[in-house]
Design a protein around this nucleic acid. Structure first.
Lengths: 197, 197
DNA sequence: CAAACATTGTGAGCACCGCATACATTGGAC
DNA sequence: GTCCAATGTATGCGGTGCTCACAATGTTTG
């Protein structure tokens, strides 16, 4: 009467999946390893085989977040015009869309509480993602639609504007009548900010 | 041999003070009501007299954060030039400075996990602060140094850029060589973004 | 093919946490 | 001076992350 096989099959994957679900539904604070184990039907200590600590689970979650974010932005570049303005617009909407539908996850991704070594892996994956936007801007420079100058220095203000808008929106602190056209204004402003002189 | 008076004198104040200290030193995750009570030398249930729940303490902390932020920005406007560029520059540096030296607190302030009613009070105080920046921009419009248009719509991109830069810096995800001149670039870009057309 | 080993899950236990409840002490209002 | 509201105490409940010794299962190897 083996109700369940002794070995689960792919515990780490299911842990991540369930964790992401409760993350989305009840926020990062409500995430408990024990509850996770209970839901999956495994002993309380089982998760620790795959994620030594709770923070490790969160780090892994953040990492998948960066991967998904990269995928989302990449997909948004398909079949969009060639001009810098159009491409940036598409990327920006993809980024903010991801941020809003994955608020708690984004919080995790950009939280400062990662373990030092996890930060390394995270840095690498985050880099992989930011490279997309950097390339986008580099292309804009090539086309003469973006001001010259060190790439990162041109890029940072754009990153900051998008990231900040996402953060403000998710925090719920800014009045609703602003969030609507807000993104358009932010994108327009960022565009003006990096126009060739 | 009254080692300690039965009543503390001003428990809520000391709770907030100590909480803010451990918040700064060890992050918001490491904040425990019991530990706080232990440090202060009071029973574990005592804090609940003043902050019914842990979240209430955090909310109160966030509220003081907004007050201090307003004070910092206000102070930064003293004795600075009249031009919009100068005033914005001063406010921006004050804001980012506060954000960097109070990373965990800022996280709390803009976290989405406030209780609904606390959000109201927070919204009010946050408004009190944002009003400063709005006024600054309104003044810029009056002087003809900022583009016309609905105030909030002009302001949002600037808010977003600053908030985003602060968030990125604190998260530690962007390479160090960028954070240095980064703020200058962000401010310059925001300025260009709101120049009159 | 069987024995040795590594991987993965179990069970029990520790110290801690937030929170609730019943009770003690205090200071001020009347 | 007595009552009462405010404040702090004592105790306990259920939950948590983490650790460690042990059991069941795959996998490699002799």
């Amino acid at each position: 009467m083996r109700s369940r096989p002794y070995h689960h099959g792919d515990l780490p994957a299911e842990l991540l999946a369930r964790a992401e679900q409760t993350l989305r539904e009840r926020g990062s604070g409500a995430l408990s390893l024990r509850e996770l184990a209970r839901d999956i039907g495994v002993s309380p200590a089982a998760p620790s085989r795959h994620f030594k600590t709770k923070q490790a689970l969160l780090d892994a979650l953040a990492l998948t977040g960066f991967e998904r974010l990269a995928a989302v932005i990449s997909a948004a570049q398909e079949g969009v015009g060639e001009s810098f303005a159009e491409r940036l617009d598409a990327a920006a909407r993809a980024y903010v869309g991801f941020a809003v539908t994955n608020a708690a996850l984004l919080d995790l991704m950009f939280s400062a509480k990662h373990s030092p070594q996890a930060s390394e892996a995270l840095g690498a994956t985050a880099h992989l993602w930011s490279e997309q936007l950097l390339e986008l801007i580099r292309d804009g420079q090539r086309r003469g639609e973006v001001r010259q100058g060190a790439l990162e220095r041109v890029a940072l203000p754009i990153f900051a504007a998008l990231h900040g808008y996402a953060g403000l929106t998710v925090s719920g602190l800014l009045p609703p009548e602003v969030t609507g056209p807000g993104l358009d204004d932010v994108i327009a402003s960022a565009l003006r900010g990096c126009e060739p002189e």
